[in-house]
Structures are given as structure tokens and as C-alpha cells.
């Protein structure tokens, strides 16, 4: 017993203990650090200059709900421009990588459901936001979401979509 204690207290033993603790810390950080994206809801006033009505820009409201469960992302967009037309588009995604330093989440996303009007403002907006030429059901595309501002105490988050460079200020859902 004394021999074991003496060995542990030696400089070499101290180094081994340090290396062991360091390894355990790395394992803990790698496997148990929370990696999931925050569930958020975001609202926006939207203005569409692409579809002017009698020279006037078109006003509407947009809602984005982002929920992640076990690495699966659910992205739901709702918009209301012309009464009584309501549009929506639902996307699902799989988390590919999480860059913890830059708080960027890389997903592979595809559209699973939608309802667009004949002249769709939401469809046009999503082409900008998701950096796509067209939207099709089941079409898989990469999408990164970066947390650029976070205040968890006040349930507040700002996210940036990449590569489109679109921002949303959001409320973190409980």
C-alpha cells in the first residue's frame, strides 16, 4: 500500500495522474457537451418589392419555428401576406456537423410539406434564405445555421443562415 502511495506521489505519478485527468476531461467534453440546437420561434415583418400591388410594396408577416430533437431538425415557415391566403413550408434535416467554436450547425435538409399560393411570396423568400434555385419536395440540400448572439438567461438568440446570410432574432422556446 505504502509503495503504491509513494509511486502515486512521485513526480512521474503526478504526471500520469494529470494525463489521466486530462484524458477524462477530453472524453467528457467530447461526448457529453451539449450539441443540440436551441428550439426557437421567430417572427418578422415582411416586405415584398418583387410583387408590387399598384406600385405599393406588399406587407406581410412571417413566422419561423426551429426545433431540433436528437439531431433531427424541423424547420417550419409560415407567412401571411394577402388575406386570406396563408402559406407554409416544412423542412426536416439531419445534423451533419457542429462546429462548437463558431457555434455553427451544418444540416442536410429537405422539404417535406408545403402550401404555396399561385403567386407565392413565401416561395420567393425561401429561395433567398435557403440559397436555392427552386424548391421541390424531397430535394436534399446543405444548410448551415450559426448562432451569432445568445442570451440564454433572457431566452434570446440571433441565428444566421449560411450561405444565404439571412438573420433571425428569436425567442428560445422553453
Amino acid at each position: 500500500m505504502n509503495k503504491i502511495c509513494a509511486k502515486l506521489l512521485s513526480v512521474k505519478g503526478g504526471l500520469y495522474i494529470g494525463a489521466l485527468l486530462f484524458t477524462l476531461l477530453m472524453i467528457k467534453l467530447t461526448w457529453f457537451t451539449e450539441m443540440h440546437m436551441y428550439d426557437v420561434q421567430c417572427q418578422a415583418s415582411a416586405f415584398d418589392l418583387a410583387h408590387l400591388q399598384e406600385g405599393e410594396l406588399l406587407r406581410g408577416d412571417m413566422l419561423l419555428q426551429l426545433i431540433e430533437q436528437n439531431g433531427r431538425l424541423s424547420l417550419a415557415y409560415y407567412s401571411a401576406f394577402d388575406e386570406p391566403i396563408r402559406e407554409y413550408a416544412i423542412f426536416e434535416g439531419e445534423l451533419v456537423t457542429m462546429h462548437s467554436g463558431s457555434l455553427t450547425y451544418d444540416y442536410n435538409v429537405n422539404m417535406t410539406d408545403y402550401k404555396f399560393a399561385e403567386v407565392s411570396h413565401l416561395n420567393d423568400y425561401l429561395l433567398h434564405e435557403l440559397n436555392l434555385d427552386s424548391l421541390k419536395l424531397g430535394q436534399l440540400f446543405p444548410q448551415s445555421i450559426q448562432v451569432i448572439e445568445a442570451d440564454l438567461e433572457r431566452h434570446f438568440l440571433v441565428i444566421k443562415f449560411s450561405p444565404s446570410n439571412q438573420l433571425w432574432a428569436c425567442k428560445i422556446l422553453p
Binding site: 418578422a44 415583418s45 415584398d48 418589392l49
Partner: peptide, 12 residues
């Protein structure tokens, strides 16, 4: 809390 407002603008 944070007071905030999002605005989205699309151009042709």
C-alpha cells in the same frame, strides 16, 4: 428581456 424586431425585405 431583449426587445427586438425582425424585418425581411425582398427585392426584384
Amino acid at each position: 428581456a431583449w426587445l427586438y424586431h425582425n424585418v425581411k425585405l425582398s427585392r426584384a
